[in-house]
Amino acid sequence: MSIQPSGLLAKPVTRITVMQGQALVSAGPRVELTTVLGSCVATCLFDPEVELGGMNHFLLAEPPAAQKAMGVDEHYGVYLMEVLINQMLAHGASKSRLRAHLYGGANLHANMARIGTANAEFARSFLQRERIPLIKEDLGGTQARRVDFRPASGQVRCRMVANDMAPEPQPIQRPAAQRGEVELF
């Protein structure tokens, strides 16, 4: 009879990076969603009954008022929060069982707009409006964070990292205005 060390029997974890502008959901017991945040915010949602979770990563809370009339922009928190909740519901979660964690929202540069603070405030108020309990948060400050989330168990590890590890905010690309020739009659 041979005895194998327990470490040899463990299956590897599949790490999936959640990029700016994404929302991903999984029930895989060996899946870990991961992201690095500066001023961005990541929301981790979890339904303990169906062992399902998901994460989003948004750069800005809401588009400027003038831009809202142009339609939905998938890069903003107001859209990505809805996408994450809807993906969770589509995979069997119940809104009444959802629990949330929030991470990020740092203000990395002292002389710049406090985008991180605005993102954090938006995320908190969104969860409150939707009546989703906020179980844990690590928001604000001046340092970047790395977040590793196991969606099937709801476990999260958040640690500070060097600010240069946070992705540079990607400008939000909007389609060019349609311009064509006009023929007058």
Rank of each mutant, 00 (worst) to 15 (best):
S2N: 10
L9N: 13
T14D: 13
R15C: 06
I16C: 01
T17C: 12
V18L: 00
V18Y: 01
V18D: 00
M19R: 12
S26A: 03
A27T: 03
V31M: 08
E32I: 04
E32W: 06
L33F: 00
C40P: 01
A42G: 09
L45Y: 07
P48K: 03
E49I: 07
G53P: 11
G53D: 01
H57S: 10
A65T: 09
A65I: 07
Q67D: 08
K68V: 06
D73Y: 06
D73H: 11
H75A: 14
G77I: 07
V78N: 07
M81Q: 12
V83P: 03
V83N: 08
A90I: 03
A90R: 06
G92F: 02
G92M: 01
A93N: 02
L108H: 07
M112Y: 15
M112H: 15
R114L: 13
R114I: 05
I115F: 05
T117Q: 11
A118S: 13
F122L: 12
R131S: 13
R131Q: 13
P133C: 01
K136C: 02
K136A: 05
L139H: 02
G141I: 00
Q143Y: 02
A144G: 02
R145E: 04
V147P: 06
G154I: 14
G154R: 14
G154T: 09
R159E: 15
M160S: 15
D164R: 11
I172V: 02
Q173K: 11
Q173R: 11
P175S: 14
P175N: 15
G180K: 06
E183Q: 15
L184V: 12
F185M: 10
